[in-house]
Design a protein around this nucleic acid. Structure first.
Lengths: 334, 334
DNA sequence: GTGAAAGCGCTAACAG
DNA sequence: CTGTTAGCGCTTTCAC
């Protein structure tokens, strides 16, 4: 069943069918009804490929993320998909892993597949080595690129992010204000976002007149989905490093710290305070529940999609939008 | 840059370019080299839409799931995407929620978008009211439909699932064998899979000569991502219902039970044993860690995709494959 | 081994 | 308001 069949049965030209299909106003109520009746009767649906070929778009957006099984990224993907679908766009999901080569390859692939735009979920798509960001610049020459939780200045690239620096600074200050000075910062990524968190931590210490100690900023090199291994990592740290609190770059690491405390018989929050990041489901699964920074994921996703829609509709849109996080206080802090 | 431009620059016809593009053998090594050189030089990529129109396929598979932010589903989606991409297929992700109307709508939409096939992730796509499964039969008339963790007999529908009945029966028996008889079964879905688990629980009790008590099979009506509300639910149960163990239909519910125990001052596993399902990240985040049924998600996903590829390549494939789960013993059981 | 040409099904500019 | 027609870029017979 093609548009020709419909036009024939309805006794009109294909152009007219196309018009009613696309809601053009230039059709008399009568012909419209006639055509609609045939369409209904034959259960006709336009061929999506032909449409794509003509319009050079199939109303699809690519979503690139390193690992959609990661709690945080999965949530982001979910919300973005929901928002896009509400706007009548389809999503092609593409999980790249963390290797530059693959990110590059898949971004390229999506561009060649003629998606209307792609949104990169997670700051790990931006490297500190600027040359490694060229693949994004390249893609941005073809289609708009949206970044969730990353900061990058380039034409046709748009960012929505949470101020991780400020949030972490506030979280750190919160601990400092309760009189705790020995705070371990735990992170497991060197992405833009992670580094911003690290700076926030440092900045809070400095502002409170405290010296920075490198050994109190620990990089966990493993997989943060392996919770026990995080606890082991902390257990194997140099015992010289004595801390009364842990600020973690995400909830997984924070849970690792809690597990470590349990293992060592430390009482939380009396002996050890813990603050996580993301306010994910992990923050309510433990005992006591985890104080965590809510980085407004849903808001960010909502915003990035409405920006995207605006761009595709050729409205003028802000290149960068920054939200503030919020510390959700639960049982792991005083 | 189109195939015409390439053909012109290479001094051949577009048919020849198409041939080298598609690896046809009927091209002399010399011409092939010439054409490839031009393609390389111009950085030419074929237009995906035109290709789709000609071949009636764009090598994309639809993935339907109720909620990709759900831990279990997110993992499934991740693995399926990875496997498909490894086979050079793209994935259109579509989160439907749990309403029949929407599942129907989106399955239809994907069929109309001319995906090559769709995989339905999670048993919630199959209803016990068989009439509500007609939308799947409808779709199966157009393209192959794959079901992950659901059981459904129909032409052009293929299932990969874990034997939830058996796994739950084994888990229950395991508890019974340690001498615990008062076991609460906690579930929050009435999907095929959840009901199979329930039967497994019942069957184990019956086999051990124990009577079934309806009040020991509790349906939690809330959102299982809200962990504290699960604990509250248990706390508000009729105090007449005294139990020494909880078998939960997923890890979220099990974590709720652990939270409940903490709240009540019950010691785990001495006063209360808990068994979860899915062996997700939640099973290692708590204290003690959760005994949970591993339902071989990765294996299932691997299998479902290789079945799919087989079908698309017109090989004969099994309509149904059933794996067995495994009880992973951790600290919440004796 | 290679080229010419007929679709694939739709959109949109143009003419009436 | 409606019809005619020229693409969109590729695949695939069918000749040579």
């Amino acid at each position: 069943m093609t548009i020709y069949d419909v036009s024939e049965k309805a006794g009109v030209s294909i152009a007219t069918v196309s018009r009613v299909l696309n809601g053009s106003s230039n059709v008399s109520a009568e012909t419209r009804k006639k055509v609609l009746a045939v369409i209904e009767a034959c259960d006709y649906t336009p061929n999506a490929f032909a449409r794509g070929l003509g319009l050079n778009s199939m109303n699809t957006i690519g979503i690139l993320c390193a690992d959609s099984s990661d709690l945080y990224l999965a949530n982001a993907v979910y919300h973005i998909e929901q928002e896009l679908r509400a706007n009548n766009y389809n999503c092609i999901l593409c999980c790249t892993g963390y290797k530059l080569e693959d990110k590059q390859k898949y971004l390229n692939l999506l561009v060649n597949k003629k998606v209307d735009s792609v949104v990169l979920v997670g700051s790990n798509f931006i490297s500190n080595n600027d040359k490694e960001n060229d693949y994004i610049r390249e893609a941005a020459k073809e289609i708009p690129i949206l970044l969730l939780n990353a900061d990058f200045d380039y034409e046709n690239v748009y960012c929505s992010l949470c101020d991780d620096f400020k949030s972490t600074m506030q979280a750190t200050s919160y601990l400092l204000d309760t009189g705790i000075e020995d705070i371990l910062f735990l992170y497991n990524s060197k992405s833009y976002s992670a580094l911003r968190k690290l700076s926030g931590y440092q900045s809070a210490l400095t502002q409170h007149g405290l010296a920075l100690r490198m050994e109190y900023m620990q990089y966990f090199p493993g997989n943060h989905a392996n919770l026990p291994s995080i606890a082991d990592f902390l257990a194997n740290l140099d015992p010289q490093i004595k801390y009364k609190a842990v600020i973690a770059a995400d909830d997984n690491l924070a849970i690792g710290a809690i597990k470590y405390a349990h293992k060592k018989g430390l009482s939380i929050p009396k002996d050890l305070c813990v603050i996580g990041y993301n306010n994910s489901i992990l923050s309510t699964c433990c005992e006591p529940e985890l104080t965590s920074v809510d980085n407004r994921l849903e808001t960010l996703c909502h915003h990035i999609v409405s920006t995207l829609i605006g761009i595709l509709e050729h409205r003028e849109m802000p290149q960068k939008v920054i939200f503030s996080g919020e510390l959700i206080k639960r049982g792991t802090t005083l």
